[in-house]
């Protein structure tokens, strides 16, 4: 086990999960820690076994995963769990988790709400392609849709269902429908009362990663925006997502490192290691 992994295991909670920082266990950092361990061949070591045990206890009767043990609802983190290598996923109920993810779409406005929104914004919103919500029974947004696409792209290697292919396509169209005027992505709101909204670096990188198998000409201006973001990005985590997004489209990366200005969270630490591996040709999010 490398020094970085030992460091990561040092902050594993006694219950087997990982915190974002130093606190109780959450699903997201636990999955990221497992991805880091898996990327260095650690599939069966005690930290992995303990983490999988924690995750297994966190799987809900509906097949999805909650973000934290005491949360009753399954949420977007189910997509993250499905990103785990199959050897790890085999110890969970991956099939039901996948079916849970396929069953979820963003909640759309009903006709009364659309009418109100049209009156407020001056434009009629049609129900567009389906994405994924953060939390059940709410609207679809960029980040959970991007993670769901990544999970389904992994799943389709072993599951030939048409539904999976269609949901990936729908999700990618959803992302394309949420491109901001500047070419990047924010949380998923391109306009506010007719005013253009600006993109964020982190969601721009994540969306580009989820669109890695789209023809380059569809995302050219998005890639340009990502490069601009990276040039001025002061966030280590956002820079990692930008690099992963650009790598997914074979764009050369700048060499400037972004120094973290505060203690890194577990996902942030792992992301920087995932970027290093992706640069070396071992991209865990590849289509």
């Amino acid at each position: 086990m490398t020094g970085a992994l030992k460091e990561l295991c040092a902050v594993q909670n006694p219950d087997g999960g990982w915190p974002y920082h130093r606190s109780s266990s959450w699903t997201e950092p636990t999955v990221f820690a497992l991805l880091a361990l898996a990327s260095e061949g650690e599939l069966y070591s005690p930290p992995v076994a303990n983490a999988l045990k924690w995750l297994k206890a966190n799987q809900k009767p509906d097949g999805g995963f909650a973000p934290k043990r005491l949360v009753e609802e399954s949420t977007w983190v189910t997509a993250l769990v499905l990103l785990l290598p199959n050897d790890m996923l085999a110890q969970l109920d991956g099939v039901r988790a996948l079916n849970w993810l396929l069953s979820k779409t963003g909640r759309e406005l009903d006709w009364v709400q659309r009418l109100r929104a049209a009156m407020m914004s001056g434009r009629i919103q049609q129900n567009g392609p389906e994405g994924w919500p953060w939390f059940p029974d709410t609207a679809a947004w960029v980040a959970p849709t991007a993670f769901a696409i990544l999970a389904l792209r992994k799943a389709r290697k072993h599951d030939a269902r048409t539904e999976i292919r269609e949901r990936i396509q729908q999700g990618q169209e959803f992302l394309m429908s949420r491109v901001c005027q500047d070419g990047g992505w924010n949380h998923g709101s391109t306009k506010a009362l007719g005013y253009e909204s600006a993109s964020y670096p982190e969601t721009t990188g994540l969306a580009l990663l989820a669109l890695g198998d789209l023809p380059a000409n569809r995302v050219l201006r998005c890639l340009d925006r990502a490069e601009q973001h990276l040039q001025f990005c002061r966030s280590a985590e956002a820079a990692s997502w930008l690099r992963l997004g650009l790598l997914a489209h074979r764009r050369p990366l700048g060499t400037a490192a972004v120094a973290a200005k505060h203690p890194a969270s577990v996902p942030e630490l792992v992301l920087s290691s995932i970027v290093r591996q992706a640069i070396g040709g071992n991209g865990i999010f590849e289509a």
Partner: peptide, 13 residues
């Protein structure tokens, strides 16, 4: 947000 997401759209609904 760790439970409800970014944005906390549950409040809008």
């Amino acid at each position: 947000g760790g439970v409800y997401g970014w944005p906390k759209n549950v409040l809008h609904w």
